[in-house]
């Protein structure tokens, strides 16, 4: 596009991370236009290093005011385009002002760059990391951004109590459910039990849904979005009083992220939603927040 408008006569930048083939990658999520290709994963504490190659078309000479590489972590709120909140930015000068002829390679290494948050791509907000290489010229600057994914292995949350709750509608339905923990890592298994203490409605089935609630923005610009990640049928048919139905859900197959609470720009919370459906398709449900955390990179 730049070439079409003739701003940049023949300068191209290629950015490549080191050891890209040995890195875990996060597969592109189909349907997410912003993550259309597999991206390398870095842990928060890892150094991000690589090579920026500047390609100048043969026979051309490009004058520039300097070349720099930046590692940027920013939160983008979709309602507020162009106004990105950068929470992390590290700049490295790659070259001082001069002229470029032919191809030239520069190494960059952000060994101390701060990457406190995990990458996230939601409905109204995304948190992204990228390396940007900029060639400053008198005219339009030439830039190249290269995204990468950050995943932070977290400490296991302390005090992992089981979640236990008694809910019901008087003289109609009374259940007690129990999840073994209040926090699960992303490869974890949710194990639970549902006790039916009183059943006066004709239950057709029961399912457990995992819901992600994303809250972005503040004040009048706050956007809440809930998204059902998965519905998992737990019980078929109507139980008798006193029955106890087990629950076991493996989280691994689903696209989950850790819970986000760290920034003031957005939060992502997860809920386990237990739903009973009766024969008239009325739904009785109870949501319960659980914390998701990352134990392994991948």
């Amino acid at each position: 596009m730049q070439a079409l408008f003739g701003f940049n006569p023949g300068v191209t930048i290629l950015v490549e991370f080191d050891h890209i083939d040995k890195r875990p990658t996060k597969p592109s999520t189909p349907g997410d236009r912003r993550a259309s290709e597999a991206l390398p994963i870095f842990e928060g504490s890892e150094a991000v290093s690589g090579t920026a190659t500047v390609l100048v078309a043969p026979g051309k000479k490009v004058d520039h005011l300097g070349i720099k590489a930046e590692l940027i972590g920013q939160i983008e709120l979709y309602y507020d385009r162009g106004n990105h909140y950068e929470f992390s930015s590290v700049v490295r000068e790659l070259d001082t002002a001069g002229a470029l002829v032919g191809n030239r390679q520069y190494r960059f290494d952000f060994n101390l760059a701060e990457k406190p948050y995990e990458s996230y791509s939601g409905l109204n907000v995304r948190l992204r990391y990228f390396v940007r290489v900029t060639i400053s010229t008198r005219g339009k600057n030439v830039t190249k951004e290269m995204d990468f994914v950050v995943q932070n292995i977290q400490q296991e949350p302390e005090a992992l109590d089981s979640l236990k709750m008694e809910v019901g509608i008087e003289d109609c339905l009374h259940i007690e459910f129990e999840y073994d923990k209040s926090a699960y890592h992303l490869q974890d298994v949710v194990i639970g039990k549902i006790y039916f203490l009183l059943v006066r409605i004709k239950i057709k089935h029961m399912e457990m849904a995992i819901i992600r609630r994303e809250t972005a923005g503040t004040g009048s610009n706050q956007y809440n979005e809930s998204e059902t990640i998965i519905k998992y049928e737990v019980m078929d048919g109507a139980p008798a009083k006193g029955e106890c139905v087990p629950l076991r859900v493996f989280l691994k197959p689903y696209a989950l992220t850790p819970t986000y609470r760290g920034t003031n720009k957005f939060t992502v919370k997860y809920f386990l939603n237990l739903v009973l459906v009766d024969e008239e398709d009325r739904r009785y449900f109870k949501q319960q927040e659980v914390t998701l955390w990352r134990k392994y990179v991948a």
């Binding site: 737990v234 078929d236 048919g237 106890c244 139905v245 087990p246």
Partner: peptide, 13 residues
Amino acid sequence: LEMTKGVQHPMRG
């Protein structure tokens, strides 16, 4: 056996 309790419909169960 434990998991099988998930089917409470008499005939299917």
